Computed example of a mutant assay.
Amino acid sequence: MMLLHASSVARGRDAVLLLGPSGSGKSDLVLRLLQSGWCLVADDQVALRAEAGELRPDAPAALAGLLEVRGLGILGPFPRAIAPVLRLVARLMPRTEIPRMPEAEAWTAEGVSLPAIRLHAFDASAPARLAFALDAALGRLGAPAGAFAKGMP
């Protein structure tokens, strides 16, 4: 098992890992995703464990169900996704570091490789972009373009 400074949300049983330095918008994006029907997995710290070739994110017990909202403090408890499978990694970064037409990227942990995208968490469209990227990673889009056209792991 590994512990990461990250956040994670799930749509159904499919989870996304949000990576980025402090202030990059992880918790802000989680808050907006919760308002659009996603479920909290973990905020601030994510415990990842490999199981049968998949990665399963969870919250450390002390943080389970809690979300830090800048300006409001620690909120919760929120309902949590139980035993989701990690399907996508979003690297949160400044808009200037996100290419218009990205090359395929991957992120690997515990011997499991997952598709990865770059995302500016504070864009109004960030929740929709994350949902589209998850659908593409799951093969639910017709003819995926851009980062997923070259066949992600």
Rank of each mutant, 00 (worst) to 15 (best):
M2F: 04
L3T: 09
A6S: 08
S7H: 05
S7M: 05
S8P: 04
V9K: 00
G12Q: 13
V16R: 01
L18W: 05
L19E: 00
L19N: 06
S22C: 09
S22A: 13
G23S: 08
G23A: 04
G23H: 08
G23V: 05
G23M: 08
G25V: 02
G25D: 03
K26D: 07
S27G: 13
L29C: 12
V30N: 03
V30S: 08
L31M: 14
L33D: 06
L33P: 07
L33Q: 09
Q35H: 14
Q35W: 05
S36F: 00
S36G: 08
S36C: 11
S36D: 12
G37L: 07
W38T: 00
C39S: 14
L40W: 07
D43V: 08
V46N: 04
V46I: 12
A47E: 15
L48K: 01
L48N: 02
A52L: 07
G53Q: 12
G53R: 09
E54D: 14
R56W: 01
P57H: 08
P60W: 03
A61H: 13
A64W: 02
A64I: 00
G65Q: 13
L66Q: 10
L66V: 06
L66T: 06
L66I: 04
E68D: 15
G71D: 12
G71N: 11
G73M: 13
G76P: 10
G76C: 08
P79D: 12
P79A: 15
R80W: 03
A81G: 10
I82N: 10
V85I: 14
V85T: 15
L86I: 00
R87C: 10
V89N: 06
R91H: 12
L92M: 02
L92C: 03
M93K: 04
R95N: 05
T96C: 14
I98S: 03
P99Y: 07
P99D: 12
M101H: 10
M101V: 15
A104V: 09
A104S: 15
A106T: 15
T108V: 03
E110P: 02
G111I: 02
L114W: 08
L114A: 11
I117T: 01
L119G: 01
H120M: 01
H120S: 07
F122V: 00
F122H: 13
D123W: 04
A124E: 11
S125Q: 00
A126I: 00
P127A: 10
L130W: 05
L130T: 06
F132L: 14
L134E: 03
D135H: 13
L138H: 11
L138R: 15
R140A: 07
R140I: 04
L141S: 14
P144D: 09
A145I: 07
A147S: 15
A147V: 06
F148D: 11
K150G: 09
G151F: 02
G151N: 10
G151R: 09
